[in-house]
Amino acid sequence: MKIGRIIGFAITGLCFGVLVQGEPIEFEIGQTATQEDIQGWNIDVTPNGDGLPNGQGSVDEGAKVYAAKCAGCHGPTGVEGPYNRLVGGQGSLGTDRPHKTVGSYWPYATTLFDYIFRAMPLTAPQSLSANKVYALVAWILYRNDIIDENMVLDRFTLPTIHMPNRHGFQISPHMGISLPTSP
């Protein structure tokens, strides 16, 4: 991951040894977490695909799930709302009226899986199977002209997708510790 490496590089040398000043105290509070403890909670997905579950989904399946579970809030084609517009807006970011959507703004397709899986639909989060989420991601990317109609998404294909705004972000100068706004 390019940005990860840049930042990693920027702060190498400051290792965690500095955390412990003198001898660490033995508190003996808390317990060791087992793989079982971790499994159910470990739902995050990173841009290189780590964390993506097994399963797969197609654009066609996605269209059906979307119509049933999402269209009411995001519009029949992902444009109409009433809530966040998911489709369109490409080329608008540098204009007076930017439209930030999955297609125009989001830098990683993996984030779409992560977010839908953890937070959508708004009224029943974490109710969708991995297959349904793959299908929804496929449909939203297809509507944004990012993948073609026949593509099937799974944990191998999803991380390979290049988002149009992949290079539309820069780390806040000094890694967010300062803004370029000093008058």
């Binding site: 490496r5 990693g8 990683y108 984030t111 992560d114 977010y115």
Partner: peptide, 12 residues
Amino acid sequence: IPGPAMTREETA
């Protein structure tokens, strides 16, 4: 983790 997670709240 090794680098940014790129969650929805730190991208979109």
